[in-house]
Simulated scan of single mutants.
Amino acid sequence: MTRRLLAVVTLLATSALPAFVLPAAAQTAAAPASTGLTGPLVLEKQGSFFVGGRNVTSDTLSTLPAYAASGTITVEQMYVRYQVPVAAQRPPVTLIHGCCLTGKTWETTPDGRMGWDEYFVRRGHPTYVIDQVSRGRSSADPSLVNSVKLGKTPADKTPPIFAAGQEAAWAIFRFGTEYPKVHDGMRFPVAAKDEFYKQMVVDWIATMPTPNPTVKALSELSKTLDGTVLISHSQSGIYPFQTAALDTTGIAGIVSIEPGTCPAATGDLKPYMNIPIMVLWGDYVETSSRWAPRLKACREFAEALTKAGGRIDHVVLPDLGIKGNSHMLMQDDNSLEIADRLVAWIEKNVKAKKN
C-alpha cells in the first residue's frame, strides 16, 4: 500500500458535509464536496458470507430425471457482501433492498454511475450489502412448487410468488403516474430504464413466515458487527424496526428510505427510544394513492416517537428544496448528493466505536 493511496483514503474518510437538518437554502448553497470522487478504491478487505439458514429435507426438490428429488437443502439464509476501507473510522452501514429487487439496488446505477455501496466505502464506512432471504444469492425453497407440479399437493396450495411488471413498476417507483408518462422534473435516468428492469426478480416474500427470516438475520449481523446503521428501502423499510423490536444490540442507527410501512404510532415505542432514526422520502409522494397514506402513517409515527422522547428525523426532500426524486432515489441523478447528506447525518447522530 503506497503512502499516496493511504492519503487518498484518509482525505475521503474525513470530509464532512451539512446534515439534513440545515435550512433548505443552506443546503442548496453547499454543494456536496465529494460527489466527484475518483481514483483507486483502496480496501482493507472484502468478501461475502451468509447469516442464518436451516436445513430442510424434501422429496420434491426436483421434477427433472437428471436430478434427485429427495435430499436436504439449506433455506432462509441471508447473503452478505462487504467492503471495508483502510483504517475505517466511521460506523459500518448495512444496505437492505426492497421489493422485487436484490442487493444490486445499491450497486452501479442503471446509467453507469457510482452506486451507494462503493460511495459509502469511499466515505470511510465499512459497507455491507445483503440479498434478502429467498432473493438473489439467498436461495429459495422449490419444494412446494414441485410438490404441486407432481400432484402431491393441491393446486390451490401453490405458493404466492409474484413479479412486478414493468408497467406497474413505473407507477410504483414513481417515474410517472402511469406508464409511460414521466413526472415533470423527475430525476430517475429513464433512458436507462431497460437496465433497471433487468435488476427485477421474482419476489417470494408472501411465502415467508412473520417476521421475515431476513429480520432475524439482520439482528445476528448487527450483533456481529457490534454497531451498524441499518439502511432499508421500501418493502424492507420496516425491517430495521422489527430487528430493533427483537433486540436493539448492535443497531447503531436506522435510515428507512420510503418504507412500505412504519411502526404504529400507537404501538410500543420503547425499542426505538435510544436509536437515532431517519425516515426519508423523495418527491411526488403526496400525489400517489399508494404512497401518500404511508407517508402520513410514518409522519404520525415520527410525531409520536418525538413526543415520547425519541430521536427521529422525518425528512421529505421537497421540503428541503430537493425536488424530482423518484422512489429509487439511490439511483436518481442526484443520488450521491443524497448519500452525502446521509453521511453527514450519520456523522452527527451515530458514534463510531473506538478500535
Score class of each variant (00 low, 15 high):
252 A>L: 04
189 P>R: 00
198 K>E: 05
241 F>R: 10
264 A>T: 08
243 T>L: 05
253 G>P: 08
273 M>K: 15
246 L>K: 04
279 V>Y: 02
289 S>G: 12
214 T>C: 10
274 N>C: 07
206 A>E: 12
191 A>Q: 09
237 G>L: 08
238 I>Q: 09
226 D>P: 05
189 P>S: 07
274 N>W: 06
212 N>Y: 10
270 K>C: 07
196 F>R: 02
225 L>R: 03
274 N>E: 10
211 P>F: 01
192 A>E: 08
174 R>F: 11
263 P>D: 13
205 I>K: 10
287 T>K: 13
288 S>Q: 05
272 Y>Q: 14
178 E>D: 10
243 T>F: 04
200 M>F: 14
238 I>R: 10
238 I>N: 13
270 K>I: 06
175 F>T: 08
282 G>A: 08
215 V>K: 03
248 T>H: 05
222 S>Q: 14
247 D>Y: 05
223 K>V: 03
267 G>V: 06
233 H>N: 06
276 P>T: 04
259 P>N: 10
273 M>I: 07
247 D>E: 09
225 L>T: 03
183 H>P: 00
211 P>S: 09
244 A>T: 03
234 S>I: 12
248 T>Q: 15
236 S>Y: 10
240 P>E: 04
214 T>E: 12
241 F>Q: 10
187 R>P: 01
239 Y>A: 09
248 T>M: 06
261 T>F: 05
289 S>K: 11
193 K>F: 06
250 G>V: 11
281 W>H: 13
174 R>T: 11
288 S>R: 03
224 T>L: 13
246 L>A: 04
193 K>G: 00
197 Y>H: 12
267 G>K: 03
269 L>F: 05
257 I>N: 08
221 L>I: 08
258 E>M: 08
239 Y>M: 14
286 E>R: 15
181 K>I: 01
227 G>L: 12
212 N>R: 00
219 S>G: 13
216 K>N: 03
183 H>A: 02
194 D>W: 02
227 G>W: 09
197 Y>E: 15
199 Q>D: 13
184 D>I: 03
265 A>E: 09
242 Q>A: 11
219 S>M: 05
224 T>A: 07
196 F>Q: 11
250 G>S: 12
276 P>M: 03
198 K>Q: 08
191 A>K: 13
